[in-house]
Amino acid sequence: MLELSVIETAFTPWQSLAGGVLIGLASVLLMLSLGRIMGATGILAGVLTPSAHPDKSWRLAILAGMVSGPLALMVLTGAMPVVDVPVSMPMLVLGGFLVGIGVTYGSGCTSGHGVCGMARLSRRSIAATLTFMLTTGLTVYIIRHVLGA
């Protein structure tokens, strides 16, 4: 069993646009203050290094801020963001492991390449983004329509 079920979701253009604007704003503010790329992969990997790296503290601070996001939203709106996981545990583990290997070799993910790199018109990031958008789409197609979850 690949997916537990397919959950229908409503089209939310305004909410998604507002979220995207905030993601872009955070990226600009991080560049303005520390001169850094807002990439989740780089931030997480930097925190995981065993040594007492001098760049660790700002990465921990930004990570703490990220994790506070849903709680802040809870305070503001009275509801936690919806996190519906239509995927079985083994697939979640397999997917997570592949994402970890992929973003390490690919030096970035949706935030680093897809937002910051694209915004800088980096050819490398554009190539990375086109590649992962394509393979994500193919994987979803195969799971849902070929294997038929």
């Binding site: 690949l2 995927v87 697939m91 994402v99 992929g102 690919g106 949706t110 390449h113 994987t139």
Partner: peptide, 15 residues
């Protein structure tokens, strides 16, 4: 790496 990331993202739904 990016291709593999996409496969994982398509399986789990989280990036």
């Amino acid at each position: 790496g990016s291709a593999l990331f996409g496969v994982g993202w398509g399986i789990a739904g989280f990036c």
